[in-house]
Design a protein around this nucleic acid. Sequence first.
DNA 1: GATCCACGGGAATACACGGATG
DNA 2: CATCCGTGTATTCCCGTGGATC
Length: 382
Amino acid sequence: MDLTERIARRWKRSPEAGLVVDWAPLNPAVHLTDPVGRGPVLERLLDAFDPVFRQRLPDDVAVVGPKGSGKSALVSALFAGLNDQVGRDRERIRTTTRAGSAEGAVRFVRVDAHRARSEFRFLHTLLDAVVDESVPERGVGTDALRDRLTDEFGAPTRRAVVAVDPVTDLEDLAVADLREWLAPVADAVALVPVGREAPGEWAGETVRVPEYSRHALVDILTTRAAQALESGAFGHDQARRIADWAGGDAHDALAAAFGAADAADRADADRVRDADVDAGIDAVPDPCVNFGRVLSLPENRRRVLAALLELDEPSTVREAAAGVARTSDLTESTVERFLYELAEEGILERVEASTDGGEGRTPSRVVARFPARVFRRLGEEA
DNA sequence: GATCCACGGGAATACACGGATG
DNA sequence: CATCCGTGTATTCCCGTGGATC
């Protein structure tokens, strides 16, 4: 957010607009363009990517760090910045050479692994990021995409650094798959897997992103809260309280702060009170899945989750499915399957339902493993 | 006509429990 | 007593169909 925007925002704000000016800065899935206090790691990454500044492709490098340490934020910001610089460079070349080819320029692409689980999807996102024209989503086979990709990275020296975020060993999207998918263009692409730990047999370099210090976390919270809320609405003590609770996890801390603001706003308070902080913290499950993962779910799954949150404590999966199906155009059996799938992905968790002596296998019920207040509020705002 | 994918249905498998069996 | 079996559910897995797009 630049200065003009900030001023405009204040200017058009009505006197009784309420506590919250803009939810986005407190959204744990939103990354600021300029990460706070990450100088050393950024330098390490820039070192790794250094060949780019000499028109060469860097080596593969894994970016690893604990949950909520800002890996994604870092990579997003860095890639945006690099593309900006290198892109400007490319423009300059384009205008000075008649051919107008992107000779030598290296592109930085970040692929959201959640949205790119199949080879087709992966190649599609990659291609889409690299070429100007739109890439067909249907009616064209994976083979065709592969050929197209090979062409793009063929004759002229087009090259790219591709970050895939997140890559976990446990996930079905393994580095082996990525390598296979990238095989046709292996010479023109550097792979940057982002995850908690380096992939199984990772031979390349690894850059570790350390957990945020308590101090840094307080900084982040106050900075973001200042952008999101009326001035003075969020106290320093409250930021400290949330930071202590979150233990270095920026994602969970922001989710809690968001929840606190939500609670205060719903109560028509003119500032966040301690009770709101409690409510905010309470609404973040432990463990809590990355909110970005929830956002990147297909629309219909998100609708199911939204409907699920509105239900009154359904005591079994089946009951929950029935309840959701009533407010949806999906069949009960489909909803039920979705619920199981979401539980399998860790977005919901199945817990044993109270056994009331029924026959057969004992049922389970599902509980949210994502920050419900954030999800609900953003659903309302949308 | 070809392609990818979401739906939806349903088959296959896993599990819990009580009762029968060796 | 340990094991197996039958029954009723829960859960997982698979695949045909059809929509949307090229």
